[in-house]
Amino acid sequence: MDHNGVRGRYGRSMAVASGWYVTVGAAVAVGLASVPSPPSTDCSAWFSCLSPGESLVLIMLVWGGPVLVGLLVVTALVTALLVRPLPSAVLAGTLSALVTVTICAAVYAGRS
């Protein structure tokens, strides 16, 4: 059982990093959904009158899912670099999530 070795720590660091993405995604979804918006009167355009649940599913399918997969791929690489020098899986996972988001934001900002 390689629980405390680098391999065990790698898995737990990835879990901690995924936990951050889930937490931040859930917080943004809950925060935006809890803000009341004026009742829309014109529902003739497509996607103009979605319920919060429907818009959440739509955003997850079109935007959230692909972004999450991309983040996890980059995180897997960053964690592989960070897990050796850092003794704690929580620290390594948190830092790799931060580094991943910074890299992805920088790449996105540089492209557009």
Binding site: G19, T23, V24, A27, G31, S34, V35, V90
Partner: peptide, 14 residues
């Protein structure tokens, strides 16, 4: 680790 950032983020968005 996760609860506090969640609450603060929801609060700040609101």
């Amino acid at each position: 680790l996760y609860g506090v950032p969640f609450l603060l983020l929801v609060g700040l968005i609101r």
